[in-house]
Amino acid sequence: MKILVCVSKTPDTTSKIAFKDGNTKFDEAGVQWIINPYDEWYSLVRAIELKEKDAATVIHLVTVGGADTEPVIRKALALGGDEAIRVNAEGGDSFFIASQIAEIAKQGGYDLILAGKETIDFNGASIGGMVAELLDVPYVALATKFELNGTTAVVTREIEGGEEVAEVALPVVVSCQKGVAEQRIPNMRGIMAARTKPLKVVEPVGADNLTQVVSYELPPAKAGVKLVAADNVDELVRLLHEEAKVI
């Protein structure tokens, strides 16, 4: 079993979001970078769990980014995984990034490709589906549980108002979210081991960018909270009914 886990770096969940250069660039000043939580807590940890059940499993991590992504990749390797591949490219839209991952996937011949359901910075939820299309393999999005039954993946996925169980023969691309695995913290042995795990750097293949961010904006500031006394809920109901018109 060969698993490819797609990993992206994202600003820490508590980061202050600000922009610079006339709102055209994300302001990275003071930002802590982490592994995208959906990639780490769910995809990577699930892959590690599968390897713990079957030692013959090989886990490769792939990321698309500059040299500054390497500390984040080492952190991911400290959790587990056998080697990492960094496609040396800065920026690029989701199609460009998916094209790079698809190329790595074609060369590696993976049985299973796991991605987070989305990154917490661009929220595109696009990479898994695009990679699956470029490889012409099935895609199951928004998994909340993932099991392997021989060469069949048994995936529980989110639907409106519930879940459904889908079975699909490998190879398959699955995007993972809460429920697939539990968050882990790397231990010292993992951190030491990560230092010597291979981190290959490959150059990108030619691929188009189909979209481009032209500017960013912050949501308009809130007018401020209107407080209502705890013994006057009728007033809150009146405000919601007459002023906000939401009930």
């Binding site: 199609f95 696009s126 695009m130 999005a141 928004l142 979209t211």
Partner: peptide, 15 residues
Amino acid sequence: KAVAPRVSAALKAGL
């Protein structure tokens, strides 16, 4: 979320 990225990649149409 499951289908649009596939259509985008198949058509090389920006999403």
